[in-house]
């Protein structure tokens, strides 16, 4: 019953599928939830999904991490793509910065309106 092609398809679907599912879950939270903290959490989940997608695109089956550690100095032809990993490293830091600023804005709004729910902040309506 061992079917290699089916297995490969299953792995592809699960990796890309989970990344896309994370993006959709985050988008749902951002669009539907009323609590500002939950919206910020949704943005972070979208971040995580995009990072997973990036690293998955750079992955090559059976290859090692792009580090010339002792014993793998001559394996340059057997290494996964290092560029998406470097970009994700940048993206994680930027994601942290935006989350921190968003949370501080939520704290300010909560202090001003005594609520963190956007449907109860009346002054936003016109």
């Amino acid at each position: 019953m061992y079917n290699l092609e089916l297995q490969n398809n299953l792995i592809t679907t699960s990796v890309y599928g989970s990344a896309i599912a994370l993006i959709l879950i985050g988008l749902y939270a951002v669009l539907v939830k009323k609590n500002l903290i939950k919206i910020v959490i949704g943005l972070s989940i979208i971040d995580a999904g995009i990072h997973l997608l990036f690293v998955a695109i750079g992955y090559i089956k059976g290859f090692t991490a792009p580090i010339f550690s002792p014993g793998s100095e001559n394996l340059a032809n057997k290494m996964v793509d290092p560029v998406p990993q470097a970009l994700v490293l940048t993206a994680i830091v930027i994601g942290f910065a935006t989350t921190a600023v968003a949370l501080s804005l939520v704290i300010r709004l909560y202090k001003h309106h005594n609520t963190a729910r956007i449907d109860q902040i009346k002054s936003l309506k016109w």
Binding site: N8, I11, T12, V15, Y16, G17, I20, I23, L24, L27, Y28, L31, V32, L53, A56, I57, Y59, I60, K61, G62, F63, A76, N77, D81
Partner: peptide, 29 residues
């Protein structure tokens, strides 16, 4: 929102089904 999510999910899935997972795209270094 659910219609929008289904659309976004459909187009993302279509796009990324064109990129084979684990394929060697670097070639000979």
């Amino acid at each position: 929102v659910i219609i929008l999510l289904i659309l976004v999910g459909y187009f993302l899935t279509n796009t990324f089904s064109l990129i084979t997972f684990g394929e060697n795209r670097i070639g000979n270094t």
